[in-house]
């Protein structure tokens, strides 16, 4: 852990501030993970009360996000850190932003699940549940990579994003086919469509977090790397 490794040479208050930031971010991550799990579980077993509860939790996460950003800016202004400390603070800021968006998605998925509950004749496709499970697992592993400062773990998360994209495409194709077949069921199918898109975005945010981890450890920005490489090749 960086904060511990450099404890002896960095000013004590900076070390203390960094530790607090680290702790707050992990507390936020565990709450967001809980939320997204609850939201995804709703797909199989929708519950209006819980959907409202998730929306409430989202507000608390927004507050946490603002507080963490505030703290980060304070540490930056007061200590003007350099090197790994600077990278750590910027990473914390970015990860907290990603987590805040995941919390929004959780609230959204819970709403979709409740919308679906109104038309019980539409079963949730197993593939969608599988994708939700994989996406939430990616988020967990991305945060594991941050805790362990493990770029290999982070790279694996980035690599797994492709399979989620494929699944999403597959599910959406299937849903569009269903819509053509049964136009009277468009509304619940649209809920499913939206849920699938949202879950795909959870995986995207997990990938962003993993990329931030690679930046934190190695100092290189790998975001859009493939995109740039393709452009150069062309």
């Amino acid at each position: 852990m960086v904060t511990i490794a450099t404890k002896d040479i960095m000013p004590q208050h900076l070390s203390r501030d960094l530790r607090k930031l680290h702790r707050d971010l992990l507390a936020m991550s565990s709450r967001v993970e809980d939320m997204i799990h609850q939201a995804v579980d709703q797909l199989g077993d929708p519950n209006f009360d819980q959907a409202v509860q998730i929306a409430k939790l989202d507000d608390a996460i927004d507050e946490l996000d603002v507080q963490i950003e505030d703290d980060c800016l304070k540490v930056l202004a007061l200590n003007q850190p350099a090197g790994v400390d600077l990278r750590r603070i910027t990473t914390v800021m970015k990860i907290s932003g990603e987590l805040e968006r995941v919390a929004d998605i959780a609230a959204n998925i819970a709403q979709r699940a409740c919308g679906l509950a109104e038309s019980p004749e539409i079963p949730i496709p197993d593939r969608l549940k599988e994708m939700a499970h994989d996406a939430v697992d990616m988020l967990h592993r991305a945060i594991d990579a941050y805790v362990d400062l493990d770029p290999m773990k982070a790279m694996q998360v980035c690599a797994d994003d492709d399979s989620i994209d494929d699944m999403n495409r597959e599910i959406i194709d299937q849903l569009i086919a269903d819509m053509h077949r049964t136009p009277d069921r468009i509304e619940p199918l649209l809920h499913l469509f939206s849920a699938s898109r949202q879950i795909e975005r959870v995986a995207d945010h997990a990938t962003n977090i993993a990329e931030d981890v690679v930046y934190l450890v190695e100092g290189t920005i790998i975001r859009h790397g493939r995109h740039f490489a393709q452009k150069q090749a062309n």
């Binding site: 852990m1 680290h22 992990l26 507390a27 991550s29 565990s30 993970e33 945060i143």
Partner: peptide
């Protein structure tokens, strides 16, 4: 502990 297991 909060680093090892992330459970609120």
């Amino acid at each position: 502990l909060w680093e090892v297991t992330r459970s609120t």
